[in-house]
Every structure is written in C-alpha cells, then in structure tokens.
C-alpha cells in the first residue's frame, strides 16, 4: 500500500506551490525526490505526516487518508513514521539522549534501560556514540543533523522521510548516511522517501528517483532511466545548467527554507 499522493494542490495566498502532484512510494522501496529549491519538496513531506493539509487532492499512508484522520489515529500512524528535518529541529532544551528518547517513550513498551540502550545504539549508527548527554547547541550543524536522523530511526518506524539528510555534510559522512539509509531498508524493510540535491547519493540509494518541478513530478524512474532521461528539465538539473526558469528564492536557514514554521496546520 504505502505512500500514495493523488492530485495534491497546495498554495499560500496567490503562490501555488503544488499543482496536482501524483506520487507513489511502494512498500519497502526507497524513493528519492529531487528538485530546485523552493519547488515544494519539504512541503510534500509535511503533507505525508499531516503537518500540512492539502488544498485539494488526497494523501494516503498505509491505506489511511492522512488529512481527515482523527487525531488519535493520526498520532498512532505518526509513530510508524520517522521524519528527519532539514535543519534537525532538535529540542534544544534537552540533551541529545533525551531528544532520542522522546519518540521511544511515546511509543511505549520499553524499560528505562532498554531506552538507554536504544539511544546509544541509534547514536552509534550515525557515528555519534557518546554524544547522548550533549546539548544540541554544543554540536556542529552536521552533528545535529545526524542526531536528528538518529532520533527519527530510533523508534524503528515503518516509513522514513528524510529531508536533505546529507546536505552540508562532508563526503565521508555523506557515505555513512547513504549506507545507513540502505541498511534501514535491507535490515528493517523500511519504506523511505529521501529529499536530496546530491545526485550521486540519489543514484546510490534509490530504487526510483522523481523530479519535482512546477508542482508536479516531471520524471520518475530508476537511477538508470533517470540518468538517461531526455527531459530537458532533468538534464538541466542533473548537469547543473543554469538558465532554466525556477523559483530561485532560497530563504536563509531558520528563515524557513520553505515551511520552516510558517502558518498553522489545522
């Protein structure tokens, strides 16, 4: 069943961002979503977890329609989804360990000791072993990002939504993260949707790649097909050819690249 978006429309005022987006992520599949900055990639993820309500169209996860789901059921569904935020979004009043334990506590069924063990294990997966008593402010941007990833995978969700998990990381760490994504899929059968700008890692981890442009998917296919695509937009994006019309406004971090804290969701 998995994730299924149909005819998704979303706009803010006169600005129409998503214009009839259709997207399917099949069970156990890893799909990458690429596109220019401001194309609405983060916005798409927010629709999947129900942080945003569509203006039109449907969002189905696990066969449940997310926008109309009653609160209780939505919360239950969210515990099956892990969300890696573009700017980590760690709770800065807590240590990294407490951040990671939040989801575990909510999911329940674990003792204190088991939680502590799981926290360490998750941190080790992102190369942050021993960081659990640090506060987010005491870590670099890249470390924060990995801690955010650890927080999302800690409670073993069935779906993982990564919002640019590797942007801003050094090449070695990028490889570590890529391997982690693959491992989650292989060992736990996780269904993933990865937003990325990095074509190299997109080819490495994806079963399929989709390109979002002007509110729609203009190309979907396996890495092989994607590389060989004749679509001029895809070509321009892959080759980094300027001149193509796109929404070039790239807001500053915290200024909310896209959805960062703008508006309400209900």
């Amino acid at each position: 069943m998995s994730i299924q978006l149909r005819g998704l429309h979303k706009g803010f005022g006169s600005k129409k961002i998503l214009r009839g987006l259709d997207l399917d992520v099949d069970e156990g599949e890893t799909m990458s979503l690429v596109g220019f900055s401001g194309a609405g990639k983060s916005l798409t993820l927010k629709h999947i977890v129900g942080l945003m309500k569509p203006d039109a169209g449907t969002v189905h996860v696990d066969g449940l329609e997310v926008p109309t789901l009653p609160r209780e059921k939505l919360f239950k569904l969210r515990l099956d989804m892990g969300y890696v935020f573009q700017f980590a979004a760690l709770f800065d009043s807590m240590t990294i360990g407490e951040n990671i334990a939040m989801g575990l506590r909510k999911k329940g069924g674990m003792t204190q000791a088991q939680i502590r063990e799981r926290v360490e294990e998750s941190l080790a997966l992102v190369d942050l072993a021993g960081f659990s008593s640090r506060f987010p402010q005491e870590m670099s941007g890249g470390q924060q990002k990995r801690a955010g990833l650890a927080r999302a995978i800690a409670y073993r969700p069935k779906y993982l939504l990564y919002d640019e998990p590797t942007s801003g990381l050094d090449p070695v760490t990028t490889t570590v993260i890529d391997r982690l994504v693959l491992r989650m899929k292989k060992e736990l059968g996780v269904t993933s949707l990865v937003i990325t700008h990095d074509m190299k890692s997109a080819y490495a981890i994806s079963d399929r790649i989709g390109m979002l442009y002007e509110g729609r998917l203009v190309e979907v296919g396996t890495p092989q097909e994607f590389q060989e695509s004749r679509n001029p937009i895809v070509r321009a994006f892959v080759e980094g050819e300027p001149g193509l019309k796109h929404d070039a406004e790239e807001p500053l971090p915290m200024g909310g690249d896209g959805a960062a804290g703008k508006g309400r969701k209900r």
Partner: peptide, 18 residues
C-alpha cells in the same frame, strides 16, 4: 516562537506528541 521557527513544534507532532 523559537521552537516554532526551528520546526521543533513540528518535530514534536511528528513524534505523536500533542
């Protein structure tokens, strides 16, 4: 406000906290 603009409130929601 800081939690809102740094998406910490969204993060809370994705972890099924009200």
């Amino acid at each position: 406000g800081t939690m809102r603009v740094s998406e910490q409130i969204d993060a809370l929601e994705t972890m099924a906290y009200n």
